[in-house]
């Protein structure tokens, strides 16, 4: 297996065959996904046909129309997922934004110490958090509530959010804030007017990740999720 980059001569002419191999390999790799999508638009007869058909003969959107959009239970689950994911994303951003800022601006000796818990939290098996959470929530009456699930999912998403967000703050020179304070801005004004707009790409990244992580999570929530959320039919 050679990983040496080939000489630049004949670059495009020689490399299209690699593209062909790549398409075949990646095609094989994502074949199960293709299968999932085609199956979702097959008719019931075709679904259980033996041998199965590789390409659906008719496009049948009934699975989506009836099972998903025409099914109150399913729509409720979908609504739950949206509500919980959005709630978690908002809460994660609210908590991570100031926390990551503080960790970017603190003195060096302390950041190492503070960063460690966030890294360790990444190692935690979801079940280690789910168990004490369940115990706590049942004492505060949060089991089977949206607030409970949002809190639990935020614990999942938060460490990651802080770790990803911190470097964005580090990239903003302190001088900018100092200049603002010379002009008479308070620390908070400097933060909201100058720093925050500059880290917007970071906030978007973190928000998307928090949403995706929460959307896909089931373990942290399954003991107390209001109604099981599932995401695809059939």
């Amino acid at each position: 297996m050679s990983v040496a980059p080939a000489p630049r001569v004949h670059r495009t002419r020689r490399k299209w065959h690699l593209t062909a191999i790549g398409i075949v390999l990646v095609g094989l790799f994502i074949f199960p996904l293709y299968w999932m999508i085609t199956t979702s638009v097959k008719t019931p007869d075709e679904l259980f046909a033996s041998p199965p058909t590789w390409v659906p003969t008719h496009l049948d959107l009934d699975n989506y129309a009836i099972t998903v959009f025409g099914n109150a239970q399913m729509m409720r689950s979908l609504g739950n997922s949206v509500l919980i994911s959005v709630g978690t994303t908002v809460l994660t951003l609210l908590l991570a934004t100031p926390a990551a800022y503080a960790m970017a601006r603190l003195r060096l000796r302390w950041t190492g110490l503070l960063l460690l818990p966030f890294l360790v939290a990444q190692l935690l098996p979801a079940i280690n958090v789910a168990l004490p959470m369940f115990a706590l929530f049942s004492q505060f009456g949060l089991v089977n509530t949206y607030q409970g699930v949002i809190l639990a999912d935020t614990v999942n998403a938060l460490p990651f959010a802080v770790i990803v967000l911190r470097p964005f703050y580090l990239g903003i020179p302190r001088e900018l804030e100092e200049a603002a304070s010379v002009d008479g801005a308070t620390r908070f004004q400097a933060f909201f007017r100058i720093v925050l707009p500059l880290v917007r790409p970071g906030l978007v990244t973190v928000g998307v990740f928090a949403f995706v992580m929460t959307w896909g999570s089931s373990c942290s929530a399954s003991p107390w999720r209001p109604s099981r959320s599932s995401s695809r039919s059939p």
Binding site: P5, K15, L18, T19, G22, V26, I30, V212, G216, S218
Partner: peptide
């Protein structure tokens, strides 16, 4: 080895990774 469309093919593979576990 860098070939045409390799970035696109890599992106497609990542879809599998972001798929919810369920």
């Amino acid at each position: 080895r860098g070939f045409p469309l390799s970035g696109f093919l890599r992106a497609i593979m990542l879809v599998v990774w972001v798929l919810p576990a369920v």
